[in-house]
């Protein structure tokens, strides 16, 4: 009964769960592009992000306060200032940039090991699958060390940190929707 009531409200835009999410990943992974698509459903060509920015985006019944943090090496130093009170991390990987897979793996590893983020759900998005030569989901799992993940089920798993990888193409606007639906159930 209540469930139904909240659904009506949220479909009317009157009730949202609030959540703080971080968009992390190496530079040129697609964080800013993702942010703009979620905000306006439009694609833009942005310059590399310098200072962190934030936008309010609504996906399903969750109102996200999304933070887009710069991905170049220097900018990564500020990431940890944003770890407190985070509800989810979205980690983007450029699935075509093989030269930097190791770097991406290291950064992701550090995030997963960080005690401040110990219970935080992680959504890994393998972006740019529209381009020729993109790594497959299996390849990316292998390289990023994500063989053991939560599973893409719609029933939330208990007692483990939710972690899953979804492949997507932001410019074709495919794939990330499933990822966000998956992560929403843990918020």
């Amino acid at each position: 009964m209540f469930e139904w009531f909240w659904n009506i409200l949220s479909s009317l835009g009157l009730y949202y769960k609030n959540a703080k999410i971080l968009f992390l990943g190496l530079d040129n992974a697609g964080k800013t592009t993702l942010m703009h698509i979620l905000r306006d459903d439009r694609l833009v060509q942005a310059t590399p992000t310098q200072q962190p920015t934030a936008e309010e985006v609504i996906i399903g019944s969750v109102r996200f306060r999304a933070f887009d943090l710069g991905g170049h090496a220097a900018a990564r130093q500020v990431w940890r200032n944003y770890y407190t009170t985070v509800d989810a991390v979205v980690f983007l990987v450029d699935s075509c940039d093989r030269e930097r897979f190791t770097e991406a793996r290291q950064e992701l590893g550090q995030l997963l090991d960080d005690t401040n983020l110990a219970d935080v759900p992680f959504l890994v998005l393998g972006n740019k699958i529209d381009l020729a030569g993109a790594a497959s989901e299996d390849e990316l799992r292998q390289i990023l060390g994500l063989q053991m993940t939560t599973g893409k089920g719609t029933v939330a798993v208990q007692d483990v940190r939710p972690l899953e990888i979804f492949m997507c193409s932001l410019v074709r606007k495919i794939g990330y929707g499933d990822g966000f639906r998956w992560v929403s159930q843990y918020i």
């Binding site: 040129n28 439009r42 694609l43 833009v44 060509q45 942005a46 310059t47 410019v171």
Partner: peptide, 28 residues
């Protein structure tokens, strides 16, 4: 991206079929 963001997107992903190898800009 520092360059692409400042260029006129006369060739974007919306019309890339016509252009073959030419660079294009992913924008609406």
């Amino acid at each position: 991206r520092f360059l692409l963001a400042k260029l006129n997107p006369s060739i974007s992903y919306n019309n890339e079929e016509q252009v073959g190898q030419q660079s294009l800009i992913y924008t609406d």
